[in-house]
Simulated scan of single mutants.
Amino acid sequence: MTTTRSLVVPLPDTTATCQARRRLDELVKPVGSLGRLEELAAWLCGAHGTVPPRPLDDVRVAVFAGDHGVSAAPPGAPGVSAYPRELTAAMVRVFQAGTSGVTVLAREVGARVRVLDIAVDAELDDVARDVVARKVRRGSGAIDVEDALTPGEAEQAFSVGRAVADEEVDAGADLLIPGDMGIGNSTVAAALVGASLGLPAHRVVGTGTGVDETGHAHKVAVVERALHRVEGRVADPFDRLTALGSACAAATAGFLVQAAVRSTPVVLDGVFSLAAALVARDIAPDAARWWLAGHRSTEPAQSVALTALGLEPILDLGLRLGEGSGAVQAVPVLRAARAVLADMGSLADLT
C-alpha cells in the first residue's frame, strides 16, 4: 500500500494574497492598524484564491481518539498522566453525547465535531458505527520499551486520516481542525517532537494533564528511554510514527496532509496536532502552507514545534485541554479578519 501516492499539494494563491494586502492598505483606517487581523485576512485570501475570502460557515473538527501503552502504570506507581487510561473510552462517549469541552466550545462558534476511534483500547460498538469503522488497532505499544505500531500500521492510519479529510471537504468544510483524545497523548507528542527536532526529553516534556513533580520526572524518564531506544532509526517519518507515535498521530498527519491536497485551510490545536504536523511536513513539505496555529498551549513541545514550523499562534489563553478546544476559539478571529476585507469601506470612498 502506497499511502503517499497522489500527494500533490497545491500552493496558496500568492496573487490573491498580494491583492488582499493592497486592498487592506486602501481601507478606511491607518495602514497596518488592524495588525494580525490583516495578516490573517491576507492569508485566507491566498488559501481561497479570492478577495475577499469566502465565509467560514462550515467549520469541522475531527477528533482522533486512541490509547497508548505508555499510559499504563501499576497501582500506586507514578504515571505519565494524572488520569487512568480507561478514561479515553469514556471520553469518546462524552464526545458523542455532546458534553465534552470541545463540543461545548464548538457549538458557540457553530462548528461541527466528529470523533473517530482509531486505536481506543475498548469496544465501542454501542457508541456509533462510524467510530468503530475507523479503528486501526486497540491501543499502541509502550514507546519506552517497544514500538508503538507494527509494520504497515502507520501507513494504514495515515490513509484513514486522509479519507476523513476527504469526507469532510466533500461535505462542504470551509475550515478543518484536528482534535485528539487519548490518555498519554502529551507523552507521545513530546517523543515525536523530540525525535523530529533532535531535542532531549527535558526540553519537550510538560505536565500534560497536570502531573505533579514526581509524575513529571517519571514522564521525562519515559521519553528519555523512548528517544534513546530509537536513536538513529527514525529519520523516515513513517518509521518515526511506527516507533514513537500512535495510530491516532498517524491519522492526524494524514488528515493534515490531505487537507492541503484539497486546498482546505487547517487550524492546528495543541501539542498533539503540532507533533503530527511536524511529521506531516516531513511527508509533504508544502502542506504546512495551509496550516495556521490556533493557540499556544502550556506544553513546551508545542512551543518548539510552533517555532520549527514558523507559526505564530492566534491566541494565547493558557489552555492545555486538547481535543481541538483551543483551535475552535480562534475561529471568531478568522471570521473577523475576513469581515475586514468583505465589509470595510475604502479611503477613496471619503473623497
Rank of each mutant, 00 (worst) to 15 (best):
L315V: 11
Q329L: 15
W290I: 01
C248Y: 14
V267K: 08
P313F: 12
C248E: 15
A275C: 04
T242C: 09
A250P: 11
G245S: 07
T242I: 02
P300L: 06
S263P: 02
L315T: 08
V331W: 10
T264V: 12
S263K: 07
Q302V: 11
F272R: 13
T298K: 07
V304R: 10
R240H: 04
L292P: 12
A243N: 00
A251F: 06
I314D: 06
I283G: 08
V271P: 02
S273Q: 04
T307I: 01
A249V: 14
G245Q: 10
S246H: 05
T242S: 07
F255P: 03
Q258R: 15
S263I: 00
D316M: 04
S273I: 03
A330C: 03
G326P: 11
L317H: 14
L244I: 07
S297H: 03
D269C: 06
A250S: 15
A308V: 08
V328C: 03
T242E: 14
C248Q: 15
R320S: 14
F272K: 13
V271E: 03
P313V: 12
A275N: 03
A243P: 00
Q329R: 15
D316W: 03
G318D: 13
V257A: 04
Q258A: 12
T264A: 12
D239I: 02
T252N: 10
C248D: 15
A308R: 06
S273A: 07
T307L: 01
A243Q: 02
E323V: 11
A284Y: 09
L241P: 03
G326T: 12
F255G: 06
Q302N: 08
V328T: 02
G324F: 08
G254F: 04
L317P: 12
W290Y: 11
E312M: 00
F238W: 06
L278W: 02
L317M: 15
A287F: 13
G270A: 14
G294T: 09
L278N: 05
V267Y: 13
A287M: 09
A249D: 14
A308P: 07
R296G: 03
V279R: 03
A284R: 09
I283N: 11
A305Y: 11
T264M: 06
E323D: 11
P300D: 09
D282N: 02
A301E: 01
A293V: 00
W291F: 04
D316N: 14
P332F: 12
P332C: 13
A288V: 15
G254N: 05
P265E: 10
V271G: 00
G245L: 09
Q258L: 06
L315E: 10
D239Q: 11
W291V: 02
T252I: 13
V257D: 12
V261S: 14
C248M: 14
H295W: 07
R289F: 08
G322A: 10
A327R: 09
R320N: 12
S325Q: 12
V261H: 14
L311K: 14
F238E: 04
V261T: 14
D282C: 00
R281S: 11
G294F: 08
G294Q: 11
R240E: 09
